[in-house]
Simulated scan of single mutants.
Amino acid sequence: MGGFRLEIDGAEVAPGAKPTRALDILRIICLSRDQVCSVETLQDWLWPDLDGDQAKAALEQALHRLRKLLGQGELVTLREGRLRLAADKVWIDLQDWEDRLKRVLSGQRDSAMEEQEMLLEGFVGPLFSNGPMPAWSNAAADRVRDGFVELAVRIAKHWQSQGDADRARQACRRALDFYPESAKLHGTLIQESLSRNDHAGAIEDYRRYERALASTGDDEPSPLLRSLVRPFL
């Protein structure tokens, strides 16, 4: 999350210039459910232009480089056509964050609020935010975005119900730092302003949403959000 980083026994590993595909194998497995990915999926994603035998050879070569880079062959195992990470030897920030998110979202809002806010503040950023995002990471990136936005909205609605507008809006703004075009976050801010009959504030919230869309090249605002403020425009 944030940016890819590899550590072994607390020391950061410099991958060097060659093992790009080797690291892609590692990244894909880390993003896969239960850290298991089929050989066929890896071949289709990383070597789509090669035929079966060529893709297989390329995968074997990249896997050899990955194991050499890690220095511990047992960290990545191949069994029954599937590559997997040794769960008892590997820690992945994404898996840890999603496990914590699932736990706090499944609990009672009030009792878990402190942990929810810690999770919100501890978010280091979307996947691959320090470089281009490969197509094979889109599903995982969307999952992280949706979970983080849901967390922020839940916190905002809690504080709104407690009459604390500042903390409610702070939660949404924290999430907007990472996902500025999120209609759900902007909609939560607009609804919060409207709940206090702050029509001017709601309009400003909507204008901020429009500016965010324009900055990302998307100039089609949500009809639902526009309908919220249409009577006051």
Rank of each mutant, 00 (worst) to 15 (best):
Q108M: 10
M113G: 02
V13I: 14
K18Q: 06
C37W: 00
R109S: 15
K18S: 09
A156V: 13
T41H: 02
R79S: 02
R109F: 02
E74G: 02
R174Y: 14
L189N: 00
D53E: 14
D198R: 01
G71T: 06
M133N: 04
R154Y: 04
R208G: 13
R226L: 06
H158Q: 12
C172R: 05
R82A: 10
D205M: 04
E40M: 00
L224H: 12
R100E: 15
V149H: 10
P132F: 00
A139R: 10
E80H: 00
Q35S: 03
M1E: 12
L59R: 03
Q54L: 04
P134D: 01
Q160W: 11
Q35H: 15
A165I: 11
K102S: 15
C37I: 08
A55K: 08
R173K: 15
K18M: 07
E117P: 02
W47E: 09
R167T: 02
D9H: 11
P180M: 03
D24V: 08
E117Q: 09
F232C: 01
L233F: 09
H64E: 12
C172E: 12
T188F: 00
D142E: 13
D142F: 00
D44M: 11
P180N: 01
S32D: 12
L127V: 13
T41L: 02
A156Y: 12
G131V: 00
Q160L: 04
E117G: 07
Q108N: 12
P180G: 10
A183F: 07
P48Q: 10
A152L: 11
L69S: 01
E115N: 14
V144K: 03
L233I: 14
E80C: 05
G71V: 07
Q116R: 15
W97T: 07
K18R: 14
